[in-house]
Nucleic acid binder design. Sequence first.
DNA 1: CTATTTGCAAACACTTTGCACAGCA
DNA 2: TGCTGTGCAAAGTGTTTGCAAATAG
Lengths: 131, 131
Amino acid sequence: MSNPGKEKKALVWEALSSRKDHPTAAELYLSLRETGQEISLATVYRALRSLAEEGRVREVQGIGADRFDPVRVPHYHLVCTRCHRVYDAELPYQEALDAFQPRVGFKVLGHEVTFFGVCSLCSDAKEAHDG
Amino acid sequence: MSNPGKEKKALVWEALSSRKDHPTAAELYLSLRETGQEISLATVYRALRSLAEEGRVREVQGIGADRFDPVRVPHYHLVCTRCHRVYDAELPYQEALDAFQPRVGFKVLGHEVTFFGVCSLCSDAKEAHDG
DNA sequence: CTATTTGCAAACACTTTGCACAGCA
DNA sequence: TGCTGTGCAAAGTGTTTGCAAATAG
């Protein structure tokens, strides 16, 4: 193995936190392999799961596979319904919503807002062949 | 077959729209079988997919399997992180959010707000064994 | 030695699809 | 006849897990 002794979890964390997009486990796995890291997909999943339990990573449930986001500041997401890319929304987290009581007896711990729509890349492409 | 010629899609629609919860495809399949309908799980999935394309059904992506909601009025959901039940939030759809431009070039078509927390059933149970 | 981490492949849960057949225009 | 809808089982996709080998203390 090329990195004996080094925790793969740290590699996964580094790979994820150095990205601005919201990669899936498989994408993270591929980018790690591309940078010469010897790691298995199972280990990427295990690392991600473990990081999520520690609260260092957030799972963004989009349309296909789950995507992961290093937890920085709570924020929202934009999911393109054409290409399924996930972007960050430039809308501040509405803390007021967590104080809201959306149903009797339900204790809100957090919330997520996901916007669905078409991203600029797809609306450009759309003009050409999908109007 | 007990309902030859009758479109199963209509049965799925009836079963879904008569419920107040947010069943998974499998749950819908079971309830149809329980009411004596001869239908296969594949057909339930096909019907749901087709209804979703028509906009008559909404997919609620929760924690495990996708859940389906007959589209009535846009509304939000509460997902219990313990039991994964999905409830409707008593918070009106914030149409203003769809007018919001969360990112340059991204055309918002809709949004979804999902609250995470603990439902009353689980917080009751929690007292007893999960403090 | 014991606890932890990892890779591999198998197992899983959920969903979609290929194919053959039934019903109807 | 040809099109649509259906069931069944197989295939697919994404994720988790069992187990043995490697590593660390």
